[in-house]
Nucleic acid binder design. Structure first.
Lengths: 117, 117
DNA sequence: CTATTATATTGTAATATCGCAATACTAGAG
DNA sequence: CTCTAGTATTGCGATATTACAATATAATAG
């Protein structure tokens, strides 16, 4: 990915954004623990609205982090491949060493910093 | 990270968000290629305003992806450790297999999908 | 066919991020 | 001290994302 086009970096940023939401991370962890779950099962585990979850699932699927398998009326989601847990593990390792600093990160600029604690 | 608190997932999401911006990705790639660069050198390479870049650098630093070393009036940035290039490589590998789908991803819901092409 | 269940999509108000300009802070030279 | 160069922070309009409710689509049973 050395010195790619601005366009490519924009797409790559969109890919990472799939990981940048608590609900999407919880979906990935649930799938990692349980293997495969359909939408209704995920709604139960996460306790959020079905339509809302479905939007997040579409995002994860488009970004190649999960795949789906239709079984009758049910659609089962599972992690796309072994690289996904690897990605989560490496990210978590770095995060664990810096979670206190992340808490103070106004992501890019002026989010009123407290707001979280 | 199995079944952590909602609070923890929110912070973890903020960590991933550090990777979710074209400028921040370009900074990481530049540092990977060149080892260490100060702010002025990064301004030259990226062609963006100094204040704007500085905000992005603060984000990367808070999230543990880069560290800094002050030398006189200059502040040199470099990748935090070897896990960072690993993270970028794994993410890029997945991304490369799905970039066409990512392009159609309205991240979570209704971004007017074209807008990019 | 109709009714029912499972999942996906859309509209939009609330909220968060981005990009830029202006300004403040810090270290060194003289 | 003052001056200058390098870096960090702040304010705010523009834009993008999120959460929720409503609605649409798909598959199966009867």
């Amino acid at each position: 990915m050395n010195q790619q086009s601005t366009e490519t970096y924009a797409l790559w940023a969109d890919f990472w954004q799939a990981l940048s939401h608590p609900i999407r991370l919880r979906v990935l962890e649930a799938l990692r623990c349980e293997g495969a779950l359909n939408v209704g099962q995920l709604v139960d585990r996460l306790g959020i609205g079905q339509g809302h979850l479905s939007n997040h699932l579409a995002c994860l699927k488009n970004c190649g982090l999960v795949t789906t398998e239709a079984q009758g009326r049910y659609v089962y989601y599972h992690l796309a491949d072994d690289r996904v847990p690897t990605l989560l593990d490496v990210g978590e390792a770095i995060f664990r060493d810096h979670w206190a600093d992340v808490a103070t990160c106004a992501v890019v600029s002026q989010r009123p910093v407290p707001a979280r604690g």
